[in-house]
């Protein structure tokens, strides 16, 4: 085989590039601590979400100091609960599932973006800092009303935040 020197140089550079890309992603995973959504949750029957402890009543729950869990359901063409309210400077874990077709739960302008697949529970933990409002969109086509599917994530100032009680 007869490979020109310049082409060998380029082959080397291409390998360097590939290794550089894999290394940055590995740094993101280990150094910066960005976790991928995975298979840590059990599967669930999307037809009987109403009887489920977590998703029968979509809600925000406090589970520790500055730690909250959100049980959210995506259905054609709404997110529940809506709006989702959490306090500033907290760690929030979302548990999201679908009652019908494949949706996504994507917080606009942020990295919080996950697929919602019927039968699976997507989990992601994020850290929220300052008060503010974020839009939530479904970015996977889910039927004729797909473009109407939206929600709101409200990060409230510490002193204004209170969990809604189910009487």
């Amino acid at each position: 085989m007869n490979v020109h020197t310049y082409e060998k140089v380029w082959l080397g550079a291409a390998m360097v590039l590939i290794v550089f890309f894999i290394a940055s992603v590995t740094y993101g995973a280990i150094g910066a601590g960005v976790a991928m959504v995975d298979d840590s949750e059990e599967t669930i029957d999307p037809d009987t979400l109403g009887e489920d402890d977590r998703f029968g009543d979509p809600r925000v729950e406090q589970v520790g100091d500055d730690e909250y869990e959100v049980y959210a359901v995506a259905r054609t063409f709404v997110f529940q609960p809506d709006p989702i309210e959490v306090p500033e400077d907290s760690t929030v874990t979302f548990y999201i599932t679908s009652g019908d077709v494949i949706h996504s739960f994507s917080v606009v302008g942020t990295n919080a973006n996950v697929m919602v697949i019927p039968g699976e529970v997507a989990t992601m933990t994020v850290e929220v800092d300052e008060p503010g409002e974020y839009g939530i969109v479904c970015n996977e086509y889910c039927g004729p009303g797909h473009h109407d599917m939206e929600g709101l994530l409200v990060v409230q100032p510490e002193d204004e935040f209170e969990l809604e009680d189910d009487e």
Binding site: V34, M36, T93, M124, E127
Partner: peptide, 26 residues
């Protein structure tokens, strides 16, 4: 090659890791 390195560095480390609500493992 140079363009790719610059664009990747910007997109990964500034646009992505510098963004809000990064998903962290529990």
């Amino acid at each position: 090659f140079l363009l790719l390195v610059v664009l990747w560095t910007f997109t990964y480390f500034v646009e992505f890791l510098g963004g809000d609500l990064t998903v962290v493992g529990t």
